[in-house]
Design a protein around this nucleic acid. Sequence first.
DNA 1: CCTGCCCACAACCAATGGTTGTGTGCTCCT
DNA 2: AGGAGCACACAACCATTGGTTGTGGGCAGG
Lengths: 311, 311
Amino acid sequence: MHGVEIEAVRTFVAVVEFGQFREAAAELRVTQQAVSKRVAGLERTLGVTLFVRTARGARPTLDGQAFLPHARELLRTVERAAASVRPGSRALRVDVLHRRIAPALALHGFRASHPGTDVDVVALGDSDATYAMEALLAGDIDATFRAVPGYDLPRGIRAERVLHDPLDLLVGPRHQLASVRSLTPADVAGHRIWVRGDKRGAEWAAYYDGLGKAFGLRIDAVGPDFGTEALMDAIAESDALATLVGSRDRHVWPDTHDLRRIPLHGPTPLYPHSFLYRTGDRHPGLAALLQHLVRTRPAPPADAWTPSWAR
Amino acid sequence: MHGVEIEAVRTFVAVVEFGQFREAAAELRVTQQAVSKRVAGLERTLGVTLFVRTARGARPTLDGQAFLPHARELLRTVERAAASVRPGSRALRVDVLHRRIAPALALHGFRASHPGTDVDVVALGDSDATYAMEALLAGDIDATFRAVPGYDLPRGIRAERVLHDPLDLLVGPRHQLASVRSLTPADVAGHRIWVRGDKRGAEWAAYYDGLGKAFGLRIDAVGPDFGTEALMDAIAESDALATLVGSRDRHVWPDTHDLRRIPLHGPTPLYPHSFLYRTGDRHPGLAALLQHLVRTRPAPPADAWTPSWAR
DNA sequence: CCTGCCCACAACCAATGGTTGTGTGCTCCT
DNA sequence: AGGAGCACACAACCATTGGTTGTGGGCAGG
């Protein structure tokens, strides 16, 4: 009974409206005695008597009348305050790292099957998973697709493995493997591979490090200033340079490059996409999206390979 | 943790202002853990994360930033509500007899032009001017609008004529005068007029008695149990019954009643509203309100009629 | 790598706010 | 006038809450 309590104020208004404690109690789903206590408490904290109790009900005193409009305003203000951050009042914001890779396509599927849910797709860029986590914690985004271990996440963030994209080797027309239809990862040993990604980004780097170590590949990450276009240009020219792309990625590059995808199998390296979200986020679209992703989660191929930390 | 708690909101604001839980806790004289719990509880009820916790403190998330102004407004509203009944330093409390008649409108004008002064409008009802005077003398209210003679007031109470509302005849669609555009009071002689008002209320009764005598009208007061709605219903049905309302009154009645106002001129009967207050009342808002009323006092029409005691 | 700072979690405890059961006073009806 | 019925207050009791102290983990800075 330290300060003014909102439930007490709500009770006060109900009593004024019904003219008696009993009905107000019924409306509020509590006993008459509880209403009596709440009103008594409010009267104590305010230091005035709010109701004249009669045999047929209760009617506000002058102080009660004076308090009433303020009480109503208070309830409206509370409602507005709660509405200002109500989950669902805005579109769900999901970060996808890049608009043309597998997670973005999964989002398109979700939008098609849930036309009622607004989803904003934002691309924070492939800088660093940490940055995305911060944005997640700060509420800038509701979820993000990242390749991270399922453990060792910041407090308040959960991850769910929802996608895995088999990798294709992408080579130019003059590459030594350009006409091959299928390869094992081990076949690529000895060929230079560049992947685009910030060295500091533990995310891509960790994956390609693991992949390289597992199959004896030489994979170099080219810094963020070296854009996708420049990388594609370099590959198109080269007879020894290749890169790796998700088989479901829908990157666009000029036709003139004549680049070829060569699927990898035996084993099939999968790039693991986790769906990261705040545990406290009550946005209704979030639950729906998570459910959709889990339901449509593809079965991994029998010969799948992923780094140990991603399992 | 059922609904939004004011203490939690206060805590939230303190944390935003200090930038960390620790200092906010010191400010609020509780432990850091209590602040942590309160914020966590608020986040749970709102369903959003309000702060990003870092090693050096806490800064609001986007939701937190959005919530902040509402939180501050909420605290101000609570303060105003409590102040409205605070013994000693409460808002100016003015009785208006009814919320939809001219004096209430005048108060709205005052509030608009003096946003710094809190005014609470209460309605004691049209029982008896004596009752209002008692409330005035007892300090329950600071002022009241009543139609009383300027003389013969209890010691300690002063009256100032501040408003006069021309009367309209209000009739139903089937009334014999329903299509007339304007009337003199004498034209209404012979038609039955009911006005709502307690017979014991010297106030209304004295005015309508005088009006009836002056122009040969038959005006009956229907008791307080006979509500405004019932009166309006009766008038809507009748071809002979009418009532009198102030031309500035903003009573609401169902559209279906199809009631018509007919202004009275030649002479124009004015209903006199006096502003009554305690001479000893030092409330700063009182002087401001009185001054405002006197300044905006309308000039009476040239052919005005008021009872002799009201002059 | 260690230290210091800041917040979260756990365990515990007093106070709160709810319940049921009962009492008192007023109205209305007989 | 007296009793029934209704409406609110009081009392006892109990689950929940919101506070405390104690402790641990993460991060920035030396």
